[in-house]
Write a protein that binds this DNA or RNA. Structure first.
Length: 422
RNA sequence: GGAGAGUUGUCCGAGUGGUUGAAGGAGCACGCCUGGAAAGUGUGUAUACCUCUAAAGGGUAUCGAGGGUUCGAAUCCCUCACUCUCCGCCA
């Protein structure tokens, strides 16, 4: 959530930035500032009257204790009339504040200066791209390979739950586990603290990281308890720091978590959902950082290199995209996407998204620290996948296939225990 | 799921209707004391919003969350969340 003071002080600049994100209602910025003016005015009025009431109430107490009953009763009557005046002001102030909150929540985060203009994925900027491998025409897509080597059973998942819930079997399950373990070790070696978070969150948490109200229909919801199944461990992990004041010397906080992720993916169809390309339940290892406001872009670069190195170690072909305003998430200020090349499908698959949210999440989370001058500052939050499992697995199977085997990447062998499948 | 007891500031802990944003202690910060340290001692030690602003100051709110009663609530009532104990159930 953006800060009202920023809207107030840099109104035109805010509108320019929103335009980069293709935000269509710049007039809301002015409306919000006006609501804030109104809010201040109402509060000042209310506070003044309330102060009078409070002071008189104290006086009544004194009068009562000195036995001055009559005067106390008189004052009581006065206060009662002031209180009647107080009611409408209180109500109006609350309504204005609520409206303000609702409206400012509609504004997405402001994109950083580095964000390219654009409307769709075609406008993303390719920052880096490795060589793309060519496979023989007989190469199989991963959904054939998983069948051939009995690694994943999609039909079984359909039976047990429904589409998008695959069953990993035998070596497929073990390969998946090996990847998770490898990712976690790689992250913790780099100083990220390992977390196993809850896989369901309450409404406050879903709001804190910005899933609500923006992604309401994309999350599974447990009605009886009011819980959301997490769409990513970013949500519970970042919310560990909701309503906290962090000591500056404790920053940066670096955390990594493995979790399943649940997404309803309403509206997806076709080749996008084939095999492992898009699922309702998938596994992911996430990295999260909570940092000083001035250091967040250094942290972002660090995370990007961190994820890039991981892809290099797995020897997968990849490219890094700087997302354009139109393709960025609602909450992000700058996002780098990582895609791996699925050689048998001849397409790029997103496996990581590394973002700096600046203070957009922390303003909702109320996560702050005191800077050197003793001033309260909102922290900056960042996160990234390191990495999303299914597409890594898909790509790994496709790119590493031979006539009658799948070659296991060097770095995974000590986890997997074998050099190849098949 | 049932019954009961709780939830107070960084922590411990007092407080059952009236100058209580909140006793006391610990911790922390700064000062005094000291050759130095410990002990001792003094002062300070929340957040948000508003107002004012060079600063200070002032106002409002906050004692798990939200509502209510009252001139006045940390204190009384209601709802919810969480913690603990016992019973039930259970991986």
């Amino acid at each position: 959530m953006l800060q009202v003071n920023v809207l107030r002080q840099k109104t035109e600049w805010v509108k320019e930035r929103l335009a980069v994100k293709n935000f269509k209602q710049p007039e809301l910025v002015d409306a919000i500032v006006a609501m804030d003016d109104e809010r201040k005015k109402l509060q000042a009025e209310f506070d003044a009257l309330q102060a009078k009431v409070n002071a008189s109430s104290k006086n009544i107490g004194k009068l009562m204790s000195t036995g001055n009953r009559e005067e106390a009763e008189q004052l009581k009557a006065d206060v009662a009339t002031w209180k009647l005046q107080l009611e409408p002001g209180k109500k109006q102030a609350a309504e204005t504040e609520k409206k303000l909150e609702e409206t400012i929540t509609l504004l997405p985060n402001l994109p950083s200066e580095k964000v390219p203009k654009g409307l769709s994925p075609e406008d993303n900027e390719v920052v880096k791209q490795t060589e793309v491998p060519m496979l023989p025409e007989t190469a199989l897509p991963h959904w054939e390979l998983t069948k051939k080597y009995k690694l994943i059973d999609f039909d079984l998942g359909n039976k047990i739950t429904g589409s998008g819930f695959p069953v990993y079997t035998g070596k497929g399950a073990k390969l998946q586990r090996s990847l998770i373990q490898y990712f976690l070790d790689y992250n913790t070696d780099a100083g990220y603290k390992e977390i196993i978070p809850p896989f369901m969150v309450n409404e406050a948490s879903a709001f804190g990281t910005g899933q609500l109200p923006d992604k309401e229909g994309q999350m599974y919801f447990v009605n009886e308890d009011g819980f959301y199944l997490i769409p990513t461990s970013e949500v519970p992990v970042t919310n560990m720091y909701r309503d906290t004041i962090v000591k500056q010397e404790e920053l940066p906080v670096k955390m990594t978590a493995y979790s399943p992720c649940f997404r309803r993916e309403a509206g997806s169809y076709g080749k996008d959902v084939r095999g492992l390309n898009r699922l309702h339940q998938f596994e992911k290892v996430e990295i999260v950082q909570i940092v000083d406001a001035e250091k967040s872009y250094d942290a972002l670069e660090e995370m990007v290199s961190h994820v890039e190195r991981l892809l290099q170690l797995l020897k997968l072909p990849y490219r890094i995209l700087r997302l354009c305003g139109g393709d960025m998430s609602f909450t992000s200020a700058l996002t780098y996407d990582f895609e791996v090349y699925s050689a048998a499908q001849k397409r790029w698959l997103e496996v990581s998204s590394v973002s700096n949210f600046e203070s957009y999440q922390s303003n909702r989370l109320k996560c702050r620290y005191k800077d050197e001058s003793g001033k309260m500052q909102l922290v900056h939050t960042l996160n990234g996948s390191s990495l999303a499992l299914p597409r890594i697995l898909a790509c790994l199977l496709e790119n590493n296939q031979t006539e009658n085997s799948i070659v296991i990447p060097e770095v995974l062998r000590r986890y997997f225990g074998e050099d190849a499948i098949g």
